[in-house]
Amino acid sequence: MKKVLSSDTIRLLIPALSLTILLISVFYLQPRAMSYVGLNLLFNLAVPIALATIAQMLIMTVNDLDLSMGTFVSFVACVAATFLQATPVIGVLILAAAIATYAALGVLIHMRNLPSIVVTLGMSFIWGGLAVLILPAPGGEAPAWVRAVMISRPPFMPMAIIACIIIAVVSHFIIMRSSFGVILRGVGGNARSVERAGWSILGVRAATYALAAFFAILAGISLVGLTTSADANIALRYTLLSIAGVILGGGEFTGGRVSPIGAVIGALTLTLAGSFLSFLRISPDWQIGAQGAILIVVLGLRLLLNRLENRGKRS
């Protein structure tokens, strides 16, 4: 039995287990959540968070960290609620320019050997400033087609869950199954050996950053689809949420060890933690604190399972 489970599977098992436990507790506290509408409400906000988490995960795969994720998603949300809605052509052009900017950042970070934390820190001011310029006061309107997709009600399964499954499957194929994904994780694991094998690290970095920007843009657009209007500060907490989501899902900061499915599950867990706490009727003062406590408990659980796994290997 032990041999059937690879260490990658165990890596995935822990986030999945924590999500299940959390979900069961929510159902126990509020049985009415166990319905089509209930599940949709529970996981609605998970879609943009999951997309942002995948974007962050891509950056983390090449051993970098994006501290501008939150402001970038806010910026995209502002563009989506104004230009993309009123003049779609200009909106698409702006977003394409944003992807190009990310690719250029990847090139810059690689060429000058800069710390990604600082460069993205600087970028977070720039995205924030652009967002304020586009939308000085909260407002704007979601494009009709985005709204239609986000509130659509497919049979059997709520939109939020279908979307999360699609995100997980697509990113799993890109990162774990495609040859691009293998090179990508190779750069995170040992950049020098990938380079000696004849790949351009520069190109891989640029492509990774562009792909991350693409996922972050989807996050911003889907967020606007849910909230119907945007605001320059709408997604600031996504920076920390996305990092926490990747780690909860079994990813590591270095070495290219990531799990796309785990990252989506991590994002779902973080979203669910919020709902779980409001069902527990915890005083709002302690909501954030309890979220921190859940994060600690889940990570403690992971340590425990890792230890068991190591013991199994030794014996």
Binding site: L114, L121, G122, M123, S124, I126, G128, G129, L130, P136
Partner: peptide
Amino acid sequence: AGIRLIMTGLIIIAVI
């Protein structure tokens, strides 16, 4: 405020 933020960001990147 917007211009100020953008300039701050550009300067941080330029310095680094």
